[in-house]
Amino acid sequence: MIPAPFDYVRVKSADEALAKLAEHGDAAKLLAGGHSLLPLMKLRLATPDVLIDVGRLSELSYVRDEGDEVAVGALTRHHDVATSPVAAAGVPVLAHVAGQIGDPQVRHRGTIGGSLAHGDPASDLPAVVVALGGTLVVQGPRGRREVAATDFHRGFFEVALAPDEMLVEVRVPRTVGPWGFHKLTKRAQDWAIVGAVAVTTADGLGVGLINMGPVPVRARAVEVAVAAGASAADAAASAAEGTEPSADNNGSVAYRQHVARVLVRRALEDAGV
């Protein structure tokens, strides 16, 4: 349970982090809260040569009301999102879900940017940001660019970040009215076997699925059905359409698809559909 040796660099600004990334390339990893990376390193499933500690970049820790959107700095801890009055007022689903990640100790260290950049389809936040139609702000040597959340997740643990880029901000639209979030776990601290989120923004209904494929899934068929006037139950029947969940010790493909339909229905009902 000891990581392989590595060099450690603590940076004081995002620019410095980018400079270090450029210097070390693939051999380096950004270290934020470390709650995705360090467990892998302890089991020696990840062996970066250099860790660039961005954990103290307070410039990237904030939850800001920006009118139609709420902007969350990439290094904002889950605990701070969960307890943010700005998040609670503007995007309550985000605060709620951030407050359910891992356990309190994990939420005291883990960050929203770390969670999204890790690209684990079983984690909760990516699906919520996808359902919200959020935008991820990425900074690199070529400047800043914005990526739609739906385009950010490319594959299993694979995101649209070049080795010399870092995620700096997550922007999500304000939600309107009630929302729903349900996840099925064996134990409270487990990753979701399946999860579903339903939210309404100015752009309409967004439905997201957790752990139903290699990337967080936007359940478009459900959204279309609701827009066409379908009931929650009828719309949820198409929740698993096109999904490719993996099978493991916690659930077969068929079981996960069934649970997705159940949880989407419940989330839609909570969201007032």
Binding site: P39, R187, A188, Q189, D248
Partner: peptide
């Protein structure tokens, strides 16, 4: 749990469902 080749699938406390206070 083991797979058919005898590989353990519950070989740490993330994969083994050790009961917690919340359950």
């Amino acid at each position: 749990v083991y797979d058919g080749d005898g590989n353990p699938l519950t070989a740490n406390l993330a994969d083994y469902s050790f009961i917690s206070a919340a359950e």
